[in-house]
Simulated scan of single mutants.
Amino acid sequence: MSPLFDLRDETQLLPGMRQARQAIARGELVVLPTDTVYGVAADAFSPAAVQRLLDAKGRGRQQPPPVLVANDAAMRALVEEVPEPVQRLVDRFWPGALTIVLPAQPSLSWDLGDTQGTVAVRMPDDRLTLELLAETGPLAVSSANLTGQPAAVTIDSARGMLRESVSVYLDGGPSKTGVASTIVDATSFVGGASDPLLRVLREGAISRVELREVLGDLLEPEAAGDA
């Protein structure tokens, strides 16, 4: 079996983080804790590694993975523009369970799948995962489960599904919430749309009520979003 490191054990923390960094550098997969559910991670700038992630999950290119970043500056390097309403969301909810879809920086050399020129970015609220991201750079990360199965909220669940397709497993204990991130589409704020609105693609840990507190009428009405 692929090695598992308990990050709560000081004797395993440094070796686990080191092996995770090395695995990412080799284009391999790592399972890591986040503030929502466990994720399976790959180097976002390695097309082969991203394809390995999709294959491990049994997912096609039409379902590209989100990208986790260590900070606001890393997000800005990946997206074409950060509109003012999006900055408000980042200031309020990052690090945290909000994934934001924006037009990707056109100059980037990467292949996350069929993204239609966009990227979904998030800064997770997990100290050790943020430390790893600061060292590896942005990681393509999807929930650590087989497509169609429940998201893993423990390392054992993730390991039972992904097995040897993952090189290193990092155990941070049971997930804090077990609730997936909320995903919002902010692409209409870029490019001069006449009536830009934030669309909720998936309501998760952050509610529409919380989003509306930040954006007011810039949040698409719920009925239209559901439709």
Rank of each mutant, 00 (worst) to 15 (best):
T129Y: 01
F93D: 01
L89E: 05
N145Y: 04
G173L: 10
R59I: 15
S167F: 07
P124K: 06
N71Q: 06
D114Y: 10
A23Q: 05
A186Y: 09
D126C: 09
L7C: 07
R59C: 11
D125K: 07
D226R: 15
D171G: 04
R18G: 08
V119H: 03
K176N: 07
G60T: 15
P47D: 06
P66Y: 14
Q51R: 14
V184G: 03
A49K: 02
A74R: 01
L133M: 12
D111T: 11
A193N: 12
V209A: 15
T187L: 00
G60D: 14
A25T: 03
S207V: 10
K176M: 08
E222L: 08
G192C: 05
V190S: 00
P138K: 06
G160K: 09
L102Q: 02
T118P: 00
V79Q: 00
A134F: 02
L32E: 09
G173Y: 09
R202C: 08
P66D: 15
A49P: 03
G27V: 13
E164M: 08
L54S: 12
P33F: 07
L32I: 15
A134N: 01
A42W: 08
I100Y: 00
S109C: 04
I100G: 02
D126F: 06
S143H: 01
S46K: 07
V141R: 00
P83S: 10
E220T: 07
A223M: 13
R212S: 13
K57C: 13
V67L: 03
L89F: 08
A224Q: 14
E210M: 09
P83N: 11
T177K: 11
R61K: 15
P106I: 06
P221W: 08
P174C: 05
A77Y: 05
S207K: 02
K176G: 05
D217M: 08
L53W: 05
L128R: 10
P174R: 08
A158R: 05
P138Q: 07
L32V: 14
S109Y: 05
R127T: 04
D125I: 10
A20W: 02
E222M: 04
V86E: 00
D125N: 08
L78F: 01
V214M: 06
V121N: 01
G58S: 07
V40N: 00
A44F: 06
D43H: 08
P47N: 06
Q22I: 11
D72C: 04
D9V: 12
L89T: 09
D125E: 04
A73E: 13
G16A: 01
S2L: 01
Q51N: 14
L7I: 07
R163G: 07
D217N: 06
P106D: 03
F45A: 15
G172M: 02
L201V: 12
L130I: 10
L29V: 15
V101F: 03
L197K: 11
Q105H: 10
G137L: 04
Q19R: 14
D114W: 11
P138G: 07
